[in-house]
Structures are given as structure tokens and as C-alpha cells.
Amino acid sequence: MAPKKNSAKRPQPSTPKPSAPARIVKVQSSDGHILQADVRALLLSSTLAATIKGYDDENKPLEKLEVNNVVGFTLKLVLEWCEKHKEDDPAIAQAEKDKKNIFIPSWDRHFLTKLPMGNLFDLITAAYHLDITGLINYGCKTVANSAKGKSTEEMRELFGIPEPWEQPSTSTATWDD
């Protein structure tokens, strides 16, 4: 039986390739916590990939990567996501970015929706600093989805928009009405 035509609509994770043994490096968060991660997972971050490449080009031993703008708890979440997606084709995330409707796979949906909003905020901000396209895509889509079917009052609470009477009186206020 011929495969369905629309089976290629949603990007599928690439099949695991037989590869060399994992190369593990230490990653240090801004608050001094040290975690371990597979280099293939870290390569999902363009920022870290550039640093790793710099070490490799100079044949320097890579002992520890310092991530100065992400705290330990958030870094642990970032690494968990990257570990799950380390086999993915980077082109998938790039292609998803340009699509109007991003499809969030079930593992990612579960991973992101179980987080309290504050942690999701930190995770997306970390993904932005580390330039992890896939995590930004899914994180932003999750935030946008959380606004669905909400009244304006609920949106105000969700996005931390103060009530008009709570606005600071200065002209430099961020959300003054």
C-alpha cells in the first residue's frame, strides 16, 4: 500500500544514527552549578556550538563550558530538552520557525506545559540567550497557546500586565496606560 501523501507534513525526528561514543563535557551555570552534557546535545545551541568549535579548531581540551546568563535550575531544563533532541536534524527547527502553525510533539508538550509559567519564562529566555531555535519555537507556541480562550482579565494575569490603576506614574513606565 502506498504511503499517505500527507505523512510528510509534520517533521519527523531523524532516526538515530550509529555514532561515536558520547563526548561528555561539564557545563557551569551562572550560579556555579556544574552539570554534565553530551556535546551533540549542546550543539543544538548555536552559541555553545560556536564555543565548542573554537576549542576544537585550536585543539584545546574542552573541560568546562561556562553559561553565564542561565541559572542552574533552568540550565538543567535546557540540557534535558537538548538531550531529548540531540538526534534531531537542525533543519527541522529552522523549517518549523517559518511555519505559521507549529506542531508541538507530545513529549515537548508535556515537558513545557507541566512547568509553572515562571520557569517557562526562564527556559524560553535561556533558549534565546543560547540560541536554541527548536526550544524557542515550542516555548513561544506553548505561551501563545496558554492565552487561548482566556478573558482579558485572565490574559492580564497570565502576561503580568498591571491594572490601569497599578501603573507607575512616571512616563518611563513599561506598561503605563
Partner: peptide, 25 residues
């Protein structure tokens, strides 16, 4: 209201992230 305000404040996201969130709406 104060605890929710500390949870996720859209205006504190980087501009590109704000844009990405709004793009998905």
C-alpha cells in the same frame, strides 16, 4: 496578583521572543 506578576511578564521577554509569541497567536 503579585505572585502571578512575578511568574511571567511578557514585557520582560527579549523583543524577538515577544514577537515570536505574538506571531503564534
Amino acid at each position: 496578583s503579585s505572585i502571578l506578576a512575578t511568574e511571567m511578564i511578557l514585557s520582560k521577554y527579549p523583543w524577538l521572543v515577544q514577537n515570536e509569541i505574538l506571531q503564534n497567536m
